[in-house]
Computed example of a mutant assay.
Amino acid sequence: MSMDADGFERLVIDELDALPDDMVDGLENVAFVVEDRPADGSLDLLGEYDGTAITDRDRYGFGELPDRIVLYRESLLAMCDDEEQLRDEVHITLVHEIAHYYGIDDEELHELGWA
């Protein structure tokens, strides 16, 4: 599947807006970013949380950079056949990375059926 960067970013925004309020209302100082690929150039990683989970921090101080949730456009496009499947995968990836923000690790995500 192919989609230009602008179209992909609009799709990500739509999926982010569709998430339940109780999932996103607690997000503080988090930037959502779209990049083409991970630094290693692979297509294996769909997204990642770059920050400190709220369960592992005291508070933000002055001048701290925001945490980042990154979605990798080319990785997500490579695994999808159509826009409906892409929307599903973007949704799953957003939920997965937001869960990491809340301190939920991969093992717990699997137990909950989210990964």
Rank of each mutant, 00 (worst) to 15 (best):
I54A: 07
R59P: 01
E64W: 05
E108V: 01
I92C: 01
P66N: 01
H100I: 02
Q85M: 12
G41R: 01
Y102Q: 00
L16E: 02
G47V: 14
T93Q: 09
I98K: 01
L86W: 02
D81I: 00
E89S: 08
H91I: 02
T93W: 10
R37T: 14
E28D: 10
P38G: 08
E107W: 05
E108H: 03
V34T: 14
D36G: 08
L19E: 00
C80R: 04
D88W: 10
R57D: 10
D67S: 13
Y72I: 12
S2N: 14
D40L: 03
P38F: 11
Y60H: 13
E15R: 15
R73Q: 01
N29E: 12
E64S: 00
L11N: 02
E28W: 09
L77C: 00
V24I: 13
S75A: 15
E108G: 03
G113A: 12
L76H: 00
M79L: 12
A53Q: 06
S75Q: 07
L86Y: 02
T93M: 09
S2L: 08
H100L: 06
D14I: 05
D56C: 08
R73M: 05
D17Y: 01
G63L: 04
D67I: 11
A78G: 04
P20V: 01
D106A: 07
R87Y: 03
L109N: 05
E9K: 14
P20Q: 00
E74M: 00
I13D: 10
L43M: 13
L46N: 12
D17S: 14
E64T: 08
M23F: 10
D25K: 15
A31I: 00
A5I: 07
L76T: 01
P66M: 08
V95F: 02
I69D: 12
G113W: 15
E74G: 03
S42T: 15
H91P: 00
E74K: 14
T55F: 06
E28V: 09
M1F: 06
E15G: 03
R73C: 06
V24R: 14
I69R: 10
D56K: 12
P38E: 05
H91F: 10
R57L: 06
D40I: 03
E108D: 09
G51T: 11
D14F: 07
L65V: 07
G7R: 09
H110R: 14
S42D: 15
E83M: 04
V95N: 03
D40N: 01
D82Q: 07
H91Q: 13
L45Q: 15
E9F: 02
I104G: 05
E74Q: 13
I54Y: 07
E48W: 09
F32D: 04
V30I: 11
A18K: 10
I92F: 11
D25A: 14
M23R: 12
